[in-house]
Amino acid sequence: MSHKVAIVWRGDGATRAEATPENNRYIRIFSELRVLGIEAEPAVYCEELQDEVRAQLMKTDGVLVWVNPLQDERTREKLDALLREVAATGRFVSAHPDVILKMGVKEVLHRTKHLGWGTDTCLYRSAGEFRDGFPFQLHAGGPRVIKQNRGNAGQGVWKVELITQPSGATPSVTVLEARSGSVPETLPLERFIARCDPYFDWGGCIIDQPFQPRLPDGMIRCYMGADKVAGFGHQKIKALIPPPPEGPDAPAAQPGPRIMHGPDAPQFQALRTKMESEWTPQMMKVLGIERHSLPIIWDADFLYGPKDAAGEDSYVLCEINVSCVFAIPDQAPAAIARLTLERLSAH
């Protein structure tokens, strides 16, 4: 085999010692890489073994990374520094940490809000800006959704709804976090705003968007292999929807299965055309990202927006995922392997 790559995911020392190409959820990616003549090896990462992982990555031609921005109370700070070091030697890294900071954070929703996937989106760069600006947006009408800049699994994503009160009363809100198992909470608006102060320490900003009333219709996850659609996933999600009286653990409170579809699924062809011919090229221009730097696998999560005059659906971008995109459609592992070979050949 002419090329060697490492596949990186988070684990502990024991997981690292026991990892093989066959005993993890990336088995199909390992297999498709092997079909194309690429030697792939597991590189389980933990901060305690940073030097060992560095030595391993420096013996490869490229690195594919699946590590969440927040997991088990750990961030990617040290890993990202290592990946930048590896990339500086000429090895390709997907996704490169600097690319993640451009497109895999919530700030991208504000930077691209003028594109066809955008909506009324505000950005606050400090606790003071949030304290001054967010109440105005909330009073302007309708519930809002605030999002910390970096996170996953619904952490730091809140639906916030103003409670109608007598004139002059201290404003109160009902809030619900998107994290699994969350329940609505009522508290003074000022206290909720103070609760969000730590988001500026890690992510640097907070994003604020209107709540999308068609959320119960489900979320469409558009999987991208660089600049081409690799498939779709449709799921009836429960995040930001209050749980039933039985509580957040009741069956009715659980999200439905994500139904996977290939890139040619007829019900998503309008979205595919928008992503490939309009929105992705426009995003690349806005963010200053060349095609060879796009993540080998990433996804854009869409909610249904208002129907247009002809009764056709519109789509509102609610998130771009880059750091750890999995599970993936059946067609995606082969696309990942093809793009990996393309990047290796270019390097």
Rank of each mutant, 00 (worst) to 15 (best):
residue 91 R to Q: 07
residue 63 V to E: 09
residue 51 D to S: 07
residue 223 Y to K: 09
residue 170 T to Q: 13
residue 25 R to K: 06
residue 260 M to F: 11
residue 115 L to F: 07
residue 207 I to M: 05
residue 328 I to T: 15
residue 89 T to F: 04
residue 134 F to Y: 15
residue 26 Y to M: 13
residue 257 P to M: 06
residue 135 P to Y: 11
residue 114 H to E: 15
residue 6 A to F: 05
residue 197 D to R: 14
residue 220 I to F: 02
residue 277 S to N: 12
residue 257 P to T: 05
residue 198 P to R: 06
residue 236 K to P: 00
residue 330 D to R: 12
residue 326 F to Y: 15
residue 165 Q to L: 14
residue 131 R to N: 03
residue 224 M to K: 11
residue 275 M to A: 10
residue 228 K to I: 08
residue 110 H to F: 15
residue 201 D to S: 14
residue 291 R to A: 12
residue 188 P to N: 01
residue 341 L to G: 13
residue 276 E to M: 00
residue 3 H to Q: 05
residue 290 E to Q: 02
residue 203 G to L: 04
residue 295 P to E: 05
residue 96 H to L: 04
residue 164 T to Q: 13
residue 344 L to G: 01
residue 341 L to H: 13
residue 18 E to K: 14
residue 56 Q to F: 08
residue 68 N to S: 15
residue 299 D to H: 14
residue 129 E to Q: 15
residue 237 I to T: 08
residue 271 L to S: 04
residue 113 K to Y: 08
residue 35 V to L: 13
residue 15 T to A: 12
residue 249 D to G: 12
residue 301 D to P: 01
residue 301 D to C: 05
residue 125 R to H: 12
residue 291 R to C: 06
residue 111 R to H: 11
residue 327 A to E: 12
residue 212 Q to T: 11
residue 124 Y to N: 03
residue 148 Q to Y: 01
residue 304 Y to P: 00
residue 36 L to Y: 09
residue 342 E to C: 07
residue 134 F to P: 08
residue 294 L to Y: 02
residue 337 A to N: 11
